[in-house]
Simulated scan of single mutants.
Amino acid sequence: MATSEVQTVQSGADKAKVAAAVALLLAGFVGFYLLTGQAAWVRWIALLAGVVAAVVVFGVSEPGRQLVAFGRDSWREVKKVVWPARKEAMQMTAYVFAFVVVMALFLWLTDKTLEWVFYDLILGWRK
């Protein structure tokens, strides 16, 4: 049985950093709405300042570093993918469309056949 190692323990400082990041993000939004009497650029600067500060504080926390590492690992894996050639992609797309059309026709035919059997033959509702 394979076990996966999950680390959920965080230090108090990391929890405080995440809480501060959330508070800064909320402060940016609150500032944006509290400055309704100001010029639009002042409101947007307040919002952007709160968001940027929140991202910076979250980025220096352990969960932030783990998120960045996860993103880097994901990008590295995407680079390893062998993408199909254009011709192969077009062929596979055509196969999928053809299958969808065939299945739609099959389901329509099945529906109409069952409708005919139940309503016309068995129940005699249609004249």
Rank of each mutant, 00 (worst) to 15 (best):
M1D: 09
T3E: 10
V9A: 14
Q10A: 08
S11N: 06
S11E: 05
G12R: 07
D14C: 10
D14S: 11
K15A: 06
A16L: 15
A16E: 06
V18T: 09
A19E: 01
A19K: 04
A20R: 02
A20F: 04
A20Q: 03
A20C: 03
V22M: 07
A23V: 11
A23R: 02
L24E: 07
A27I: 01
A27Y: 03
A27L: 13
G28D: 02
F29T: 04
G31I: 12
F32V: 04
L34I: 03
T36F: 15
G37C: 02
Q38T: 13
Q38G: 08
A39I: 03
A39L: 06
A39D: 12
A39Q: 12
W41M: 04
V42C: 04
V42N: 04
R43F: 01
W44D: 00
I45A: 15
I45M: 11
I45F: 14
I45P: 00
L47M: 12
L47N: 01
G50Q: 02
G50K: 05
A53Y: 07
V55L: 15
V55S: 07
V56A: 14
V57Q: 01
V57Y: 05
V57E: 01
G59P: 00
G59M: 03
S61E: 03
S61R: 04
E62N: 03
P63I: 12
P63V: 14
Q66T: 08
Q66C: 03
V68W: 15
V68G: 02
V68P: 01
A69W: 00
F70Q: 12
G71N: 10
G71M: 08
R72D: 05
W75D: 00
R76C: 01
E77S: 13
K79V: 09
W83M: 09
P84R: 06
P84L: 12
A85H: 10
K87L: 14
K87R: 15
E88K: 13
A89V: 10
A89P: 04
M90F: 12
M90Q: 13
T93V: 05
T93C: 03
A94W: 10
Y95G: 06
F97G: 12
F99R: 07
F99G: 09
V100D: 05
V101Y: 06
V101I: 15
V102T: 08
V102M: 09
M103G: 00
A104H: 01
F106E: 02
W108S: 08
W108N: 02
L109V: 14
L109G: 10
L109E: 07
T110V: 13
T110E: 04
K112W: 04
K112E: 05
W116P: 01
W116F: 15
V117L: 15
V117T: 06
F118N: 05
F118V: 13
F118Q: 02
Y119G: 01
L121E: 13
I122G: 00
L123Q: 13
G124R: 14
G124H: 13
W125D: 01
W125T: 08
W125F: 12
W125M: 04
K127H: 11
K127V: 11
